[in-house]
Design a protein around this nucleic acid. Structure first.
Lengths: 145, 145
DNA sequence: GCATACCCCAGTGGAGAACCGGGATATACT
DNA sequence: AGTATATCCCGGTTCTCCACTGGGGTATGC
């Protein structure tokens, strides 16, 4: 299956922004890119898409950067993926409604699978992942004591 | 998500073969292609893949064609899709195991989604779809009476 | 031995993914 | 005002894969 680099990069970047959400301080592309090993020029495009989707706010100029536009527990992974992977993917789906009986049946099974992934991605929010990350960081630290 | 044309075509072809499974008579590419509106030269390649995967048997020469190699209730959609979509897709997956904590977390969620689709595709066999098809054909006929 | 149908290999066109680059614009700080 | 900073927006490039086409080889039934 997919979940192309794009979505992964976008989620990584958003998780980084969750960390600075409390302070309100903007994070810059360079910092996010360095932290998560993402090519910065590419990340720029993804953040532009996320901005148009209303997930992040941007501030231009010196001391600028990006901040989360919504609360991290109100952003599901599905929201992000749909935004980044192109919403037209499901909008332009109807095509010619499978000319044969077999075609419609297969299409129905496929939609069932689609719903299955959607429900997985909808059940996690950015906050969930961030919390999980913090827990793991804590655990990792304990090994050094 | 995907489920590219390839898988759909393969499933359509296999469903067609389920219909002639009892009689043991081979079906030819041309017939399947015409019945399901699939470009025949393309279908040929898919059937070759299915043959290498052990799903169909082929008979060459005049009066040749394809027959199902296994019982239709012993072939799940997942089997077919894995065969056609390339098994290397999951074999070559390990890549560099996401250098950051966030990366591994996202990867885990993604695997959960992957399992969700797999379980959907595994719960249906070719026989299931064929039975459903026959039931619908029956219903459609009743409208004409 | 000839038509039939599979077999194999090779190529094409288009779409999208993953990038890179340059110049314009807005902002903070001095 | 001026300059450094950072986003914004317009491209282009390379690569891979999908969907599909084509040619010649090989086995089989009549």
């Amino acid at each position: 299956m997919e979940l192309s680099c794009k979505s992964e990069y976008a989620l990584l970047a958003l998780l980084e922004l969750v960390g600075t959400y409390q302070s309100g301080e903007p994070l810059q592309i360079r910092q996010i890119a360095a932290q998560q090993h993402i090519p910065d020029r590419y990340l720029e495009q993804l953040l532009a898409t996320l901005r148009r989707g209303g997930f992040v706010r941007s501030q231009r100029g010196a001391k600028g950067g990006y901040t989360l536009a919504r609360d991290p527990w109100q952003i599901s992974l599905l929201d992000v993926i749909n935004c980044i992977e192109g919403l037209d993917a499901q909008t332009a789906d109807p095509k010619q409604a499978s000319q044969t009986v077999e075609g419609t049946i297969i299409h129905e099974v496929w939609q069932e699978a689609q719903s299955a992934v959607d429900s997985v991605f909808q059940r996690y929010t950015l906050q969930d992942l961030a919390t999980q990350r913090d827990a793991r960081r804590q655990r990792n630290l304990m090994y050094y004591i």
